[in-house]
């Protein structure tokens, strides 16, 4: 019953080419997602998800826990195998490439240069036993940087960009607060100037005041660097602040999608209405 409603809502909310929405030049998307599905045994993780993401565009995926949003993120980042559907990515100089046809070597290269992945828990995304500088420098070294001084000064710059004290360059992340760890993880991901970043609840584990500052920082970075991003969040305020566009998921399916302000101000699907009424009025 809700499927029909959802289709209508989705149709109503995807009026024109996304390039217009994001204010970017037209043409091919950065990431094209078609019919993405994944089951866990008999249970649906994620079913028939399709969208285009353009360069510089930020998409928020929202829904309750168990809605399939994290599965979707893992599928997009090629951390999970697809049961059905396809993923195409615009590789510089090669055009839109089917990611399943990419060799593992190319895929890993992509992941450590052109992509980023910010884990919800920074401990999962950092090497806790090496210094902040080594954490930021790792990607540079993985792609061939061999000048210690330059790696170090680049790492220092990035600590400053994420508003960390550069004097803490040689300290282990274990001594940092949760907010600092998350900043470090962001710097570690952005150091190779990726074009696409996946973020899994990047502010969920933090205090409210810390969250607000981190969100401001993220918004600045995304704008300054022209990043495209897919952000999974259960927090509609995060989506409101960061995302151009929003995708509402329930039970593994997309129930509504559209411009963030439109969806949040005038939700069409009853489930979205419920989400908005219960959360956003705070």
């Amino acid at each position: 019953m809700s499927a029909q409603h959802g289709d209508r809502a989705a149709a109503a909310k995807t009026p024109g080419p996304l390039s217009q929405l994001a204010g970017k030049g037209g043409g091919a998307p950065l990431l094209r997602v078609e019919g993405l599905s994944r089951k866990y045994g008999g249970r649906i993780g994620c079913s028939d998800v399709s969208f285009d993401l353009h360069a510089g565009e930020v998409l928020a995926v929202v829904g309750e826990s168990g809605s399939g949003k994290s599965t979707l993120l893992q599928l997009l980042a090629t951390r999970l195998a697809l049961d059905a559907g396809s993923l195409h990515y615009q590789i510089t100089g090669r055009g839109l490439v089917d990611l399943s046809a990419l060799s593992e070597a190319d895929r890993r290269w992509l992941m450590r240069t052109d992509w980023g992945y910010v884990e919800q828990n920074p401990r999962d995304g950092l090497r806790m036993n090496v210094s902040a500088g080594a954490n930021v420098g790792e990607r540079l070294m993985a792609v061939g940087a061999r000048h210690y001084g330059e790696i170090r000064s680049t790492a220092k710059d990035w600590l400053q960009r994420v508003e960390m004290d550069p004097a803490r360059l040689d300290e282990l992340p274990t001594g940092f607060s949760g907010g600092m760890q998350q900043r470090l993880q962001i710097a570690r991901n952005l150091v190779t100037r990726p074009r696409l970043v996946f973020m899994d609840e990047p502010t969920a584990g933090l205090d409210v005041s810390v969250q607000a500052r981190l969100l401001d920082l993220l918004r600045e970075l995304v704008t300054d660097l022209g990043l495209a991003a897919v952000i999974v969040t259960h927090d509609l305020a995060v989506a409101r602040l960061l995302a151009h566009r929003i995708l509402v998921m329930r039970e593994g399916r997309v129930v509504e999608t559209g411009l963030t302000d439109q969806v949040l101000d005038d939700p069409q699907h009853p489930y979205t209405q419920l989400l908005v009424s219960s959360v956003l009025q705070v």
Binding site: R127, V130, G137, E138, A142, R146, I151
Partner: peptide
């Protein structure tokens, strides 16, 4: 082999 250089950096 980035991992190995992380060790040397450290």
């Amino acid at each position: 082999y980035g991992l190995m250089h992380v060790k040397l950096y450290e």
